[in-house]
Design a protein around this nucleic acid. Structure first.
Lengths: 198, 198
DNA sequence: TAGCCGTTAGAGTGATCTATCTACAGCCCA
DNA sequence: TGGGCTGTAGATAGATCACTCTAACGGCTA
């Protein structure tokens, strides 16, 4: 398993990455096991070797890996901006650019799965909820850090995550980037309003 | 086809309603044709008799029927409230109540399908886009009606639809109603801000 | 060199998928 | 009474689904 000469990620990782990509774009139900291993250029049996729980275990791994990775990326963008409003704009614009760059396939790594499995698979539903909760928690922290009180910070955080997800949904369906920038501007106004002491 | 004595909707309508319910909850890919006719208590061949295009035609019918029905419902709620802020609150609270009442299955009739088919089926993607466009258009009209200028009205409308969809996604994943009410309050603040002349 | 174990290999299972097929039941109008 | 149309009925095709099985390969330690 030590991949000395080979210049590619190990099989387990390639399978996870391929599954993540397909789940994001096509959703959980529409993605087949065979398609995953083909995309990953991995042997069929290896999937069940590394993920004995099959499709569900693989999906949970994808959710719990892609979620934090995305969060880290967003935090990086956020913290690189000079102030709160710039951070907000950078994140929304970044989402819009990503959506466009991926031919309107990707922007949120778990949105499709989250809606799909919410009433279908409890294990995966909880996994998506945990990811969302972490995102909201992280954003809430950014707001309390600048002196916004806890309740307002959480309300703002929930609103902004909702704006990102909803804007993503609208713009992906329309294959343009209008809702995301508009939502970003409105988010800026909300934060400005909050900081100006209501 | 004339259902004289029978006290139930005609077969075609029963199939459409059953498909709508299943698509909303489980999504497009995860819902089987057989499951639809079973739920509708309809003969198998009738599905292909009424919807020769099969699953895709049925889904498009569902999208293009459920979308306007939902819009009409929201407009009714909106117009029944005494003022703009009350309308906004009524819609967001109504969404939260519906979500809870349906055991966190239903709140938006096309959200799941929209994300699922966006990169998969062009016909259905366009159908979801048309529905979203109609919603945004309707809401934009409500705002211009009270004197908000066109550009601001559209930005507000996009933002509010995004908030509804995103809040729905978060609250469904978490099986609670926190994001939707929070988003509603923030929407009220945005509209108030807009009307107070920035 | 011998043996071990993580990994690869792919055929095969049973279930389920969408869709098509032929046959026929009931009703309207001629 | 007879022809034609709408809708019902269900078997079946052919593909694909997730998953399991046995066997063997190959680099490692003993």
């Amino acid at each position: 398993m030590t991949d000395l000469a080979v210049e590619q990620p190990p099989t387990k990782e390639r399978i996870r990455a391929a599954a993540a990509d397909l789940f994001h774009r096509k959703g959980y139900a529409a993605t087949g096991i065979k398609e995953i291993v083909t995309t990953a250029s991995a042997p069929f049996a290896s999937l069940y070797h590394f993920y004995p729980g099959g499709k569900v275990e693989l999906a949970e791994t994808v959710i719990r890996t892609s979620g934090p990775m995305f969060q880290q990326l967003v935090e990086l963008v956020w913290d690189a901006a000079p102030d709160l409003e710039a951070s907000l704009r950078a994140v929304f614009d970044g989402a819009a650019m990503t959506l466009e760059a991926t031919d309107y396939a990707d922007a949120c790594p778990i949105a499709v799965i989250a809606l799909e499995v919410a009433s279908t698979n409890e294990v995966l539903r909880v996994a998506t909820d945990d990811v969302f909760a972490a995102w909201v928690g992280s954003l809430t922290g950014r707001f309390t850090d600048v002196g916004i009180d806890a309740a307002a910070a959480r309300s703002l955080a929930l609103t902004i995550i909702a704006l990102l997800e909803g804007g993503f949904m609208l713009d992906r369906a329309a294959r343009r980037t209008e809702a995301l920038p508009a939502a970003g501007e409105q988010a800026v106004r909300l934060v400005r309003l909050e900081r100006s002491g209501r």
